[in-house]
Amino acid sequence: MPAARSPADAPLFIVLNTGSGSQDAGHTREVIERLLGEAGRRHRVLPVQDGRRLPAVAWQAVQEARMQQGIVVAAGGDGTINAVAQAVLGSGLPFGVLPQGTFNYFSREYGIPADTESAVQLLLNGRLRSVQVGRVNDRIFLVNASLGLYPVLLENREDWKRQFGRSRVVALWAGVVTLLRGHRRMTLEMEHAGRLRTLHTSTLFVGNNRLQLEQTGLDGADALDQGRLAALALRPTGRLAMLWLLARGAFGRLGAADEVQSFSFSSLRLSVLRRGRRRSRIKVATDGEVSWMRAPIEFRALPDALSLIVPDDETA
C-alpha cells in the first residue's frame, strides 16, 4: 500500500542508460531535463554508454543523493533498473524509475507509465510504496532469476537483438531457435522448508513479478504478497515439447502443463550436480543479465526492501 508522498523538493539523481530500448537517448534526456527544469526541480542526469559502468555510476548517484537527501532514479530497461536498485538497496533512499526497455515488467507491475513525459510527472507527483525484491547470492532481482536453459536463451536473445534490433518479435524468435538447438538437463539438490530434495530439470525459474507470472499463466503470484518467491521447474522433455511449452506460455497457459512443476519459498539453497559431482560455478540470470556465481546458490525473498515512487492512484 502507498505509505507517503515522495519528497517534493528532493533533488533527483538520474542514471540514464543510453543503450536501453529503441528510443533515442539524446531525445529522452532532453525531455527529462526540460520537464524537470519547467517544474523547478533540482536534478542531475548521469549518462552511461557502457553497460559495464552501470554499477559504478549507480553507486556514485547513491552517494550524491545521500549527501543531499535526494532520490535515485533508474532510466533504462529491467537490467538497468536492477543495477541501480542494487546500489540503492539498504541506503534508505527513495527509488524512481523511467522505463526505457523492451518489456518493462518491473515498471508495469507498479503502474509506472512507459511514456517518458508521464513517467517524469510521476516522479514529481507520486507516492512511496515499499516493494519486495529477490536475492540470489550477492545479487538482487526485481523480476526473475534463473539457471539452466533460460540464461542460455537470454544470451542468444541478446545476440539476435544486436543483429535485428530490440523488439518482442525478435525475442520470441530467439527463444524458438534456442529450443530447436537442444539443451542440457540438470540435477538439482535443493534445500528449503527444512527438506532436502533432488530435482531433474532443464531450467529453474524464480519469479518476483506478478505481471509476468500471470501473463504466462504460471502459479505463484499470490505467494509474492506473502513475502515469498515463486519457482517453476520444467521436467526434462524433447525439443518439440519445449516448443509447445513456449506456445502455451505465449497464450498464458504454461502453468497448466504437465511438464511444469511449481512451488514457492522464502529461502532456498541449491547445488547443481553433474556426473555425481557438485559444480563449483553456475551460470545465473538476474533480470536479463547473465553472470557466473559460486555454488551453492542461495535464493531469498526480501520484503519491503525498496521505497519505490508509484502512481498516487493505486489502481493505475
Results as ranks from 00 to 15, higher is better:
A87L: 06
V97C: 00
F103D: 14
G101P: 06
G70L: 05
L36S: 05
A85Q: 00
T18R: 14
G21P: 07
Q132L: 09
Q68V: 11
R52N: 11
L122G: 04
T18Y: 14
E109L: 10
R34N: 10
S91K: 09
F95V: 05
F13M: 07
A58E: 10
G37H: 10
I81F: 02
P47Y: 06
E64N: 10
E109N: 11
A87S: 08
G111N: 04
A83W: 05
V15M: 02
V62Y: 09
P55D: 01
L93W: 03
I71W: 02
Q100E: 15
T80C: 07
D115Y: 02
N17S: 03
G40N: 03
A25G: 10
R129F: 08
A25S: 10
V57S: 08
T28E: 04
V45S: 00
D78R: 03
G96A: 02
A4K: 13
A3C: 15
E64L: 14
R34C: 09
G40A: 00
L128P: 10
Q49L: 15
Q68E: 10
T102N: 12
V84P: 04
Q121L: 09
G92D: 06
E109M: 09
L93H: 05
G19N: 15
A39D: 11
A4V: 15
A56I: 09
A56V: 08
A58L: 11
S22E: 11
N125M: 07
G19R: 14
V31E: 13
P113S: 04
R66A: 15
V73D: 02
A75V: 03
G51M: 14
Q132F: 08
I81G: 02
G101M: 08
V57L: 08
G92S: 00
G77T: 03
R52G: 10
G111A: 00
P2C: 11
G134P: 06
E117F: 08
L54Y: 11
E33F: 07
A4D: 13
A39Y: 12
V84I: 05
P55Q: 02
D24R: 09
Q100D: 14
R41F: 04
